[in-house]
Simulated assay, not measured.
Amino acid sequence: MTPVSVADLVSIRSRHPEAVAEAAARRTRRPLLGDRGRLMIVAADHPARGSLAVGARTHAMANRLDLLERLCLALSRPGVDGVLATADILDDLLLLGALEGKVVMGSMNRGGLAGASFELDDRFTGHRPEDLSRLNFDAGKLLLRIDYDDPGSLATLHSAARAIDAMAARRLPVFVEPFICRRDADGALRNDLTPDAVTLSIAIASGLAGTSAYTWLKVPVTADPDDMARVMETSTLPAVLLGGETGGDQDGTYEKWRKALQLPTVQGLVAGRSLLYPGDGDVATAVDTAVGLL
């Protein structure tokens, strides 16, 4: 993996904090969709929501040096278009020079901390639209979880719609990741990945805000991937697949992605832990395999 010096990063951050903005200003940009017309984005916005686990490894993503080295390796592989992350991680990657010619996507709402009683209250505690514009970033992403039994979901819908409006006003694409979710008997929040639930979430997300011109969808592959064709008929908005964890079945996950990537509205893949922390530890091979699916 690409060696990263924490000491160097801390030195720059403590002595020259303006270096982040300077690196953002001189960064070489590219169109959201390149000549290939497909998107391969590596996601690393999990830690800011307190979600550090990968499978049975409860603190796999807690080591920032290790995460940055994995990200730099993934971004160096052919066919990887960019990264989705929160400000702290993107600032590090800017300082490392790892974002040259890449799509940079800021994660906007990280307030719904994993396992918290307020998990569904997904406040916009990350990048604001004005931050993404100021830093010359290329897109934003927001999480939209809706629980029909929680009246607070109405506030989440409202704040998401206004964020989409603000992004469209700046002509910045925003990737909306919608879920219908419920709390189980123990109070834990569960995303419903049945075809009917994913269909419903897509229909709701597609209609938010005063325009959908800059809205993309970020959708999970349903529990039964054979139903994805029907699910994706719900909207004409461009979509990317949400990678998610593999559950130990890396090959089966790749096959589900491959089938879904053939659908006309699906333009690419956003995957994080499954590629950065594969079961065999081989980040390069996991990333290259995912790129090959496109």
Rank of each mutant, 00 (worst) to 15 (best):
residue 97 G to T: 10
residue 188 A to S: 12
residue 91 D to G: 07
residue 77 R to K: 14
residue 209 A to P: 01
residue 138 D to N: 14
residue 226 D to A: 13
residue 40 M to G: 08
residue 77 R to L: 15
residue 107 S to Y: 11
residue 134 R to H: 13
residue 161 A to F: 08
residue 210 G to W: 06
residue 131 D to C: 14
residue 45 D to V: 09
residue 63 N to H: 10
residue 81 D to P: 04
residue 225 P to R: 12
residue 287 V to G: 06
residue 96 L to M: 09
residue 279 G to W: 05
residue 56 A to H: 13
residue 144 L to A: 04
residue 22 E to N: 10
residue 104 V to N: 01
residue 215 T to W: 00
residue 91 D to M: 00
residue 291 V to F: 02
residue 45 D to W: 08
residue 30 R to Y: 00
residue 189 L to P: 01
residue 126 G to T: 02
residue 264 P to Q: 04
residue 25 A to N: 06
residue 24 A to K: 06
residue 210 G to D: 11
residue 6 V to R: 15
residue 132 L to W: 10
residue 168 A to K: 05
residue 34 G to P: 01
residue 193 L to R: 12
residue 53 A to E: 08
residue 121 D to R: 15
residue 160 A to I: 01
residue 169 A to E: 14
residue 31 P to N: 03
residue 9 L to D: 10
residue 282 D to Y: 09
residue 96 L to F: 11
residue 123 R to Q: 14
residue 281 G to A: 08
residue 41 I to D: 02
residue 143 L to V: 10
residue 35 D to Y: 05
residue 8 D to W: 12
residue 242 L to M: 10
residue 129 P to K: 05
residue 200 L to W: 06
residue 143 L to W: 10
residue 66 D to H: 11
residue 21 A to G: 12
residue 11 S to R: 15
residue 212 S to K: 05
residue 19 A to R: 15
residue 152 G to I: 00
residue 176 V to K: 05
residue 97 G to R: 11
residue 131 D to W: 10
residue 226 D to V: 04
residue 9 L to I: 02
residue 122 D to N: 13
residue 222 T to G: 14
residue 292 G to D: 01
residue 103 V to R: 00
residue 19 A to F: 04
residue 255 E to A: 15
residue 254 Y to C: 14
residue 285 T to E: 15
residue 198 V to G: 04
residue 233 E to Y: 00
residue 164 I to A: 14
residue 91 D to K: 02
residue 47 P to K: 00
residue 139 A to Q: 01
residue 212 S to A: 15
residue 17 P to F: 04
residue 270 V to A: 15
residue 10 V to C: 14
residue 83 V to M: 10
residue 267 Q to G: 10
residue 71 L to K: 03
residue 217 L to G: 10
residue 182 R to A: 11
residue 49 R to F: 00
residue 249 D to A: 13
residue 255 E to G: 01
residue 21 A to W: 11
residue 1 M to F: 06
residue 162 R to G: 00
residue 270 V to Q: 09
residue 287 V to F: 03
residue 73 L to Q: 11
residue 33 L to I: 04
residue 173 P to M: 00
residue 147 D to L: 05
residue 261 L to W: 08
residue 162 R to V: 15
residue 153 S to R: 02
residue 58 T to Y: 09
residue 229 A to T: 13
residue 162 R to L: 10
residue 191 N to I: 08
residue 231 V to Q: 05
residue 68 L to G: 03
residue 276 L to H: 04
residue 128 R to T: 14
residue 106 G to W: 03
residue 118 F to G: 01
residue 4 V to P: 08
residue 57 R to F: 03
residue 82 G to M: 03
residue 161 A to S: 14
residue 292 G to W: 07
residue 62 A to F: 01
residue 118 F to E: 15
residue 255 E to L: 11
residue 262 Q to S: 14
residue 228 M to E: 06
residue 2 T to D: 06
residue 14 S to E: 07
residue 86 T to M: 06
residue 258 R to D: 13
residue 173 P to H: 00
residue 258 R to T: 07
residue 151 P to G: 09
residue 202 I to D: 04
residue 203 A to M: 10
residue 291 V to A: 07
residue 204 I to E: 09
residue 242 L to F: 05
residue 29 R to I: 11
residue 243 G to A: 03
residue 31 P to V: 05
residue 253 T to R: 08
residue 73 L to A: 06
residue 84 L to C: 09
residue 269 L to N: 06
residue 125 T to Q: 03
residue 98 A to V: 05
residue 140 G to P: 02
residue 50 G to L: 02
residue 251 D to T: 12
residue 140 G to F: 12
residue 160 A to R: 05
residue 67 L to P: 02
residue 73 L to V: 14
residue 10 V to N: 11
residue 83 V to L: 07
residue 279 G to I: 08
residue 281 G to W: 08
